[in-house]
């Protein structure tokens, strides 16, 4: 197997059977503060078990991920993707770096999940970056960021609900996204304590800023957590509704009689500032599953074939 990438916590190999697939092999290394720290025997196995279970769970709920299936521990088979240069972080509880830059107390439960983006850059130590900045410097298109945000919120819902079964709380997690050769944007990450922070009874389930000398304790706690997670019941998490909104507008330059009538009445009622009114339509399409590239592609076909008439109308799609 050809080694494609030798990362801190995983090695990526070319799948000898298909150019479109890769084999991710987890390692025992622990990444602390972006530095390759130490190795703890047994960690790779736990990351493997947790990722296998959670990615399989998310796929089962309809989230599009790079996961194909597990191979022998600690390897998983995934679709090959081009990774977007941003990390998407979702927070439910205020922790470390967020507290430092917001002044919010550690452990504060956020009113609603917060999605933030970080630039993937070893040299700059993965700094926080705004969506506007990402788009302005041409890193990732706005619509793709929007998609990542929506999928991240779906993932958050499904993970939160699953962990709840064991009275665990998902404080925050981060994901990488990638695009497949077929143009599908998918979650392309593992799901383990390397990128998730899980709390229990108001405090982090595991707090190992200093692992030296506590390796055994670490592995034991980690193993207990993985046992808890793999004993959850995915079928008891109900699917969440997602709303796709299609807005159909009359094309510029085409007369819009319903708008003209509306304008006339607005002016007659004293709203004389109405210079022009154009009436369109809004379709709210409710899905019982997460949004995927394939669904947006299908919707685009439906927009052209049914929901709008391309001769006289234009359409836009919004969600999340």
């Amino acid at each position: 197997m050809d080694l494609i990438h030798d990362g801190k916590t995983r090695k990526v190999h070319q799948d000898p059977e298909s150019a479109d697939r890769e084999i991710v092999e987890f390692t025992d290394s622990i990444a602390l503060d972006d530095e390759k720290a130490e190795s703890i025997t047994g960690k790779a196995e736990l990351v493997y078990r947790m990722t296998d279970f959670l990615l399989g769970y998310l796929e089962g709920k309809g989230v599009d991920t790079h996961f194909i299936r597990s191979l022998e521990s600690p390897k998983i088979l995934v679709r090959k993707v081009d990774i977007y240069p941003v990390l998407v972080v979702c927070r439910n509880i205020a922790t470390k770096s967020f507290c430092l830059r917001s002044g919010v107390d550690e452990g504060t439960v956020l009113e609603k999940p917060l999605v933030e983006f970080f630039l993937i850059s070893d040299r700059l130590h993965n700094p926080l970056i705004t969506e506007r900045a990402i788009e302005t410097i041409g890193l990732v298109k706005d619509e793709i960021l929007h998609f990542m945000r929506a999928v991240t919120l779906s993932v958050n819902y499904y993970l939160v609900e699953l962990l709840k079964q064991q009275s665990l709380v998902l404080a925050d997690f981060r994901l990488e996204f990638g695009i497949t050769k077929a143009g599908h944007i998918v979650v392309a990450d593992e799901l383990s304590l390397d990128n998730m922070s899980i709390w229990d009874k108001g405090a982090p389930y595991m707090n190992f800023d200093e692992i030296k000398g506590k390796e055994e304790e670490f592995i034991q706690a980690y193993g207990k957590l993985v046992d808890l997670i793999t004993r959850t019941k995915p079928e008891e998490v109900s699917n969440r509704n997602e709303i796709l909104q299609v807005i159909v507008k009359p094309k510029d330059g085409i007369r819009n009689p319903p708008g003209e009538v509306t304008k006339k009445m607005l002016v007659r009622m004293g709203f004389g500032d109405a210079e022009d009114v154009r009436v369109g339509k809004v379709f709210n399409i409710i899905l019982r599953r997460p949004i995927t590239s394939e669904i947006l592609h299908q919707l685009n076909i439906m927009n052209i074939k049914l929901l709008s008439n391309p001769i006289s109308e234009k359409h836009e799609v919004s969600y999340g």
Binding site: I254, N309, S312
Partner: peptide, 10 residues
Amino acid sequence: PGALLPNVSA
């Protein structure tokens, strides 16, 4: 070809 839009009188 074309489309049939609302009458101009609405």
